[in-house]
């Protein structure tokens, strides 16, 4: 599979992940909705590290900022830092089992959430409650699903 196809898959999957991020769920599930865009982004950073890097993550973060009405740069900063840590460790992560990866993913999600919280706090209206961290836990459980799904779509083309 060549690089341009990988990039096409990248754009399409990020597009759908953004859709999932703002999908209008019933009130009960809203607090549990994980950060699909970040999970997808991490997958692509690990899969094609030479194509998807810090700048890419930053651009995607800016669009997510506009999409969710945050300060410009909030998701961008969180995503680019997370992408950087994944880039640094991608060789080692490739050797890991899926459940070992999940552990690393959870810390990545936590890092991104904490940066987002810091900025919300700087804006002056944030409360650190469990609700803020629920998406991290749910996101960790969804990592194997994302990984296998995206790899399946990459393998069939």
């Amino acid at each position: 599979m060549n690089k341009s196809q990988a990039l096409k898959g990248y754009f399409v999957s990020i597009f759908f992940a953004m859709g999932l991020n703002i999908f209008s769920l019933p009130v009960f599930f809203r607090d549990y909705n994980p950060d699909w865009v970040l999970l997808t982004l991490i997958y692509w950073v690990l899969a094609v590290p030479e194509k998807v890097g810090v700048f890419n993550a930053w651009g995607v973060g800016l669009i997510v900022d506009v999409l969710t009405g945050r300060l410009l740069g909030q998701h961008a900063l969180a995503y680019s830092l997370t992408a950087f840590s994944c880039l640094k460790l991608h060789k080692r992560l490739g050797q890991y089992l899926l459940r070992q990866q999940s552990l690393f993913i959870s810390s990545s999600l936590l890092l991104s959430k904490m940066i987002e919280f810091m900025i919300e706090d700087f804006k002056g209206d944030a409360q650190l409650t469990v609700v803020f961290l629920l998406p991290v836990i749910v996101g960790t459980f969804f990592w194997p699903v994302i990984y296998t799904t995206l790899r399946f779509f990459r393998s069939i083309r």
Binding site: W58, L71, G73, L77, S80
Partner: peptide, 10 residues
């Protein structure tokens, strides 16, 4: 670069 631009934007 990205971090500095982000902070500037914020």
């Amino acid at each position: 670069i990205v971090v500095l631009v982000s902070i500037f934007f914020l």
